[in-house]
Design a protein around this nucleic acid. Sequence first.
DNA 1: CCGGATCCTGCACGATACTG
DNA 2: CAGTATCGTGCAGGATCCGG
Lengths: 111, 111
Amino acid sequence: MTEEIQVDDNGKLKCSIEYTLNKVGGKWKLVILWHITFDGTQRYNELRRLLPGITHKMLSQQLKELEQEGLIIRTQYNEMPPKVEYSISERGLTLKPILEAMHEWGTVQGG
Amino acid sequence: MTEEIQVDDNGKLKCSIEYTLNKVGGKWKLVILWHITFDGTQRYNELRRLLPGITHKMLSQQLKELEQEGLIIRTQYNEMPPKVEYSISERGLTLKPILEAMHEWGTVQGG
DNA sequence: CCGGATCCTGCACGATACTG
DNA sequence: CAGTATCGTGCAGGATCCGG
């Protein structure tokens, strides 16, 4: 079994936290994942309401990236009107410790 | 004791994770904290070596912000040549669960 | 050795209009 | 309802020089 070592564009060593930040960094991803994980499956417009301040573009963009990473699952119902649900995947569930830790810290430190 | 509720610029509710991201979000803060927490007290240039790719400006800027947040402690020795050490604070130690969770995830998922 | 000051660039993020 | 398309912009982040 070969050793997989994380490197950046210049071939320098990266620590594992940088890998994580690459996947779920940015302003919205962890917040989205938190809601889908703990509030359960959500529709598109439900997420918009849960995320005050997010724009149309950012929500759909972040959802698409999260789906491509296999962290959430997109389920489309071909009805009228359209209905799309986003749920957490098994891989996404492995982020739970991170979400819980960050939520706990924000709650305690933020008052 | 009054209830402290997190709100954004428009008075909308924020979830605790957003508070956390405000404090330790961005490209470098968590990585810096990880090294100072688990590799122990570090000098300025030692941190530069531990953080391949970080620029002079970003390192000093992030260190200053982390110190102002009370997450790390800056100790200056008035010698020649100058010597400055950065160590984790008690408040900074409360981030340990987050750091461990993100490092663990990056290690497992990143291979 | 440890930074601050300045100037600059690019991309994350946003506003808005349009569509099946 | 659940998105795309287009166009802007501000600030995170970077390069470089200066100073104690």
